[in-house]
Design a protein around this nucleic acid. Sequence first.
DNA 1: CCTATAATAAGAATGATTCTCATTATTGCA
DNA 2: TGCAATAATGAGAATCATTCTTATTATAGG
Lengths: 151, 151
Amino acid sequence: MDMSTVSEIDIDQLAASQLKSIKQRYTKNRRQLIAILLEATKPITINQILESDSELAQSSVYRNLAILEQAGLVVRIITNDDHAHYELAEHILDHHHHIICSPCGEILDFHLSAKIEKALESSLKKIADDFGFSIDRHRLDLLGTCGDCIE
Amino acid sequence: MDMSTVSEIDIDQLAASQLKSIKQRYTKNRRQLIAILLEATKPITINQILESDSELAQSSVYRNLAILEQAGLVVRIITNDDHAHYELAEHILDHHHHIICSPCGEILDFHLSAKIEKALESSLKKIADDFGFSIDRHRLDLLGTCGDCIE
DNA sequence: CCTATAATAAGAATGATTCTCATTATTGCA
DNA sequence: TGCAATAATGAGAATCATTCTTATTATAGG
């Protein structure tokens, strides 16, 4: 299997189709956001997006990320950091979790072994049933301090 | 084992001692916050705290919850909801995770079986090492829709 | 009982995010 | 291809949870 679950060409089709299903267009700005998130390889903030492309208007970035999130293409990640982080949804990347540095706010992706992930999922399914919840997804975060911030 | 890891009497001693270690006093307001969180049995928002005791000043509640968090007595929980939720730290309650209803913002606690929790922890320890992270804690959230919001 | 120091609380300030609305782009149809 | 009709854009205003300021009040320790 190659690096990503979905090839870059397919992403455009996927994005167009998922946006269409909520009656939204796949515009130049939205295409650009997807491209930036794809290059980032880790969750990034709105400020980082604005720095990486000075053509983008802040208000449009906020609005379009919200729309991409509604379309299920992008996930917004909230931590104790002031700024939200954004990354592509798991069916575009793959299922993973986040390791978060509390001092600097950086977020990196990590993967659980298939075995533990599976055991966890089946546990969680049972728990959701017990609570009468309908589950969308789970998230697992590791909170601590990265090597750079330890010194 | 009884309902909580630490009995109510011990909490006062614990709170006093943990506050002292960061040179803070265990005042009437802070005692009251601990009591409210203990009664809540689930994570609650600042608004809910203010509603439950009209004597408390909003600014003091914010400040004191931040201090209780620094002392390691309280945990602040951030979700996609606008309002942060607060609950007592895990050495006062016990280690647990959160099931979150996206529509209404409600948060409930759940427990993983000891077996899976243990397997997960040892996995996470290895991953933290690989990343050169020093880990404080992990958190696992189940995101979905509660029974009340499904109808 | 004093005095120094910390905590309190009312309201102002901050800042990420959301909203407004006039302008610009796009789509579908003739 | 040209023309509405409709959607997207972007600049700046508004919102609102949270944090900060500061004058007042409480507390601890000699």
